[in-house]
Design a protein around this nucleic acid. Structure first.
Lengths: 254, 254
DNA sequence: ATCTGTAAATGTAAGTAATCGAAATATAAA
DNA sequence: TTTATATTTCGATTACTTACATTTACAGAT
């Protein structure tokens, strides 16, 4: 019957189906006044079960999902700095490394203070410019079409050129790490290029803060066993670390 | 569906895909007035989710500030700006152009405000980042070893890749123009790459302020008759212009 | 069984705020 | 200049909040 909990169930059910509900709509369907619906939505919002907006409510926070690069960079900035610092310590004298693209590896590039000769191959223009400041570092820029959002190259030119190199380490940033599905990123072309990078390097080191775990992006880069090492922050659970360890992936938490 | 939050989501989604959105475009797609779209963009800008620009908005990351501001750039800055503006007017709809490297062509890149589709191939990372802001422009970055002083690539990778393109125009910056000896630059490798660019373009346009005339750099790029047009400032003497004219080079003084 | 008080649930009404577009004005680009 | 884009102002519409009234359910008293 016309019960409060009953209404809440209906509202949440509808929300699951459509991702969005409207106050007007619900009035009619549930045969109650708009004020009541608003009170319901307020309660459900307080419980964190939905997000209120003018005229209705939605299941997901519309603003937290797809933040642009600048904003993305501000998020978990401290974690990324620590991850970058830790990764920078892995660089050895006369290394030749590949650096992919993304905000995490840019933080890494900023942490590199080479004291010996270092060769870097990168797809990211920002990483290239950052490392070009160091006199001991030779930077090789990969070619290709520039992505608007990330200022890094993609495409077959880069993939072909990568075949001519063999580097000691690849430092890779990803959008999602799923022990079952592997590593993913938002764009398919970026994923393809990243996979070519893996093949051009003897060791693959993934840099990813804890928010990336359990997520899946659109484009699959590789299976998890193709990764040698993951550097992340302390918020990653022991359970995940154990699963990854069993698959032969070393996880470093900083 | 006519909801504010929905619109914001759509706008952000589109931004993520294309890196740029236009007010006009969004009006039609979302079936609201331009005023409303502007209000939306204003709100999203305040949230730090995008950057507003005339006629639209972009994700434009302000890394452009990190350009190497060496003394080279400061000198003859006004002349270079005027030369750049004049050169920008030569761009036609659906052009595919090559932009070399140097401070003069960077000034040129900043003057480009494309209204039609434009494809740009460049060796300079700064030019690439600058043009990456424009939604209508497809930027192709050439590969190679990064030069410390100019943040542009050199080397055989770029030379080989250039063989795969045929562009309508090349915009070239040089260090010296000598009617008898030809065009020169400081580095031999840069000269070689520049010559490959000339071969990949149907028309070669040299951008050079008056101080470059009569000088010779170390590396020879080409003979003077390989140049179709030179854009320079008014301080170049009539005598030189006449000599160049006889060799089939059109000189534009701005 | 029938009152009666209390609290929760819901509705009504009145005032407040948000949304949005039209027109006028201002500003920037060509 | 002309043209395109921005901003401002205003009014209409819709949604929201608040305060208070009504209903309902139920416990305890009569």
């Amino acid at each position: 019957m016309a019960n409060l909990t009953h209404r809440h169930q209906k509202i949440l059910q509808r929300l699951q189906e459509k991702g969005y509900v409207q106050v007007n709509e619900l009035c009619q369907q549930l045969q109650v006044s708009a004020v009541t619906i608003r009170k319901d939505l307020k309660l459900l919002e307080q419980k964190g079960l939905l997000f209120r907006s003018h005229g209705g409510a939605s299941l997901h926070n519309p603003y937290i999902n797809e933040l642009p690069v600048n904003e993305k960079e501000k998020i978990r900035i401290e974690e990324k700095r620590r991850i970058g610092e830790a990764a920078a310590k892995l660089i050895e004298p006369d290394d030749a490394i590949i650096i992919a693209s993304g905000t995490t590896v840019l933080a890494f590039a900023r942490s590199i203070r080479p004291r010996h000769h270092l060769t870097v191959i990168t797809a990211s223009l920002n990483v290239a410019l950052e490392l070009n400041r160091h006199p001991e570092t030779e930077v090789i820029q990969l070619p290709g079409v520039l992505r608007k959002s990330s200022a890094s190259v993609i495409g077959t030119y880069a993939e072909q050129l990568l075949q001519q190199f063999s580097c000691s380490k690849l430092f890779l940033g990803v959008d999602g790490i799923d022990p079952a599905f592997g590593c993913t990123t938002t764009s398919l072309q970026e994923a393809t290029l990243n996979h070519c990078m893996i093949q051009a390097a003897r060791k693959t080191i993934v840099l990813a803060d804890s928010s990336k775990f359990g997520k899946r992006g659109f484009g699959k880069i590789c299976d998890i066993d193709e990764v040698d090492q993951i550097i992340t922050d302390r918020e990653v659970s022991d359970t995940i670390v154990k699963i990854l360890d069993e698959k032969g992936v070393e996880v470093v938490r900083v």
